[in-house]
Design a protein around this nucleic acid. Structure first.
Lengths: 217, 217
DNA sequence: CGCGTTCGTTAGAAGTTATAACCAGTCGTT
DNA sequence: AACGACTGGTTATAACTTCTAACGAACGCG
């Protein structure tokens, strides 16, 4: 994968073990959700006992933060890959959905229930705004926005409070489109992944595609 | 409140104690989220030690299930109250939002990260579909739907798979409107409550109101 | 009045996170 | 080559958690 030339063997071992721990952590999270993640269980699974892992992670919280960071990184990469210049917004939307369906608990680690006290470290919010930037790029490029109905009050508000679009040159209609794109897709996705559509009989993908049509047409 | 005539004193005591436990539970959940809920802590807080609470709740899971039931009941009541015959959909939407803002963790107990193994008991899904029914009523009554752009493919799909609208006579456009109403509002709400808009500079309420305008205009 | 149900207690098992102390192996430096 | 520091793993322990079991006391119905 990466050029592993100047690393000392210790560093390589350390990195490899940390990676394996995270691997097992993802398995546990996929199986029982974030609260079901147990450092002890991971250690035993790897043949070493208990507090050994504290040499590699300061504690459960740091491990989870690391997982969140990786998840954001992963999402940002797929979004960036889908926002390639020629593509339209719909492609970005579908990339988001397949990413989420790939591992629902990973999705919920980012967009699920927040723990009240937690504040994400700086570099994580950095990645989040990187995603927003991709979204703004795509919303601006996808010129088909023209015949989307506008909403003057919201656009005015966004034009005055565009700190979130840090220096991005997108015009107010694109700002609004990017936000609506995000919130509407997240709406369908989060309800679908949380199972609120199961047993209702219809296919959530149809709903998702319908929203995509509305946003990109 | 209710007629408490034929209850034996034991039953009254039991009910009152259960209520107080749930009271404390909500406080803990509001403060530290659902995973921060501790039966032991509640017991100590109430002056009695440890396993005493197991006389009243089979375990942590049953307590949480009870809280979920109460939360659904509360939401269903506010939705029903807002869906009074004369009112429009916007009113229902605002009722949903103020209910959610009232206690974000209560909202997340219903619409946040699901625990992988959990299956809600029958009566809870009952309440959930009661909410859906209110929504369908309102969507059907709010005739202003006419000039909302339609989406034939989705409406066709919904017309064929309307098991979720258990026997509800709403026509396909109303089905679609109800679903969009729900997912779009949940999209803005869940992102707002999870703090994904904090530090972005704009007011989520403007976004919410914009979605309401689009859905009810 | 008595007897049975209910309530609350303490004790204990099996987990968890996390810290402390200790021991051994590795690695760099002298 | 040998010494010393650093790293990685171990066990022991503390302070939690949920939850079961066994016991005693109090309440209330017949």
């Amino acid at each position: 994968m990466t050029v592993a030339g100047k690393e000392t063997p210790r560093e390589r071992y350390r990195a490899q073990l940390r990676a394996e721990v995270k691997e097992r952590a993802w398995e546990q999270i996929a199986a029982a959700g974030a609260p079901g993640l147990s450092l002890n269980a991971i250690a035993k699974q790897m043949g070493m006992s208990g507090p050994a892992l504290y040499r590699y992670f300061a504690g459960r919280d740091e491990l989870i933060t690391e997982l969140i960071r990786d998840a954001y990184r992963s999402l940002a990469d797929t979004v960036r890959a889908a926002a390639v210049p020629g593509a339209d917004l719909a492609r970005l939307g579908r990339a988001l959905r397949t990413w989420a369906l790939e591992d629902p608990q990973r999705y919920f680690l980012l967009y699920g229930t927040p723990v009240p006290g937690y504040h994400a470290p700086e570099d994580i919010t950095e990645i989040a705004s990187e995603i927003m930037e991709c979204l703004l790029d795509a919303a601006q490029a996808d010129g088909a926005a023209a015949d989307t109905p506008t909403d003057a009050p919201l656009e005015a508000h966004l034009a005055e409070h565009r700190r979130w679009a840090a220096g991005h040159p997108a015009p107010p209609p694109a700002l609004r489109r990017a936000l609506l794109f995000w919130t509407r897709l997240q709406g369908v996705l989060s309800l679908e992944l949380a199972g609120h559509f199961t047993g209702m009989g219809f296919d959530p993908e149809e709903l998702y595609e319908s929203e995509l049509r509305h946003l990109t047409r």
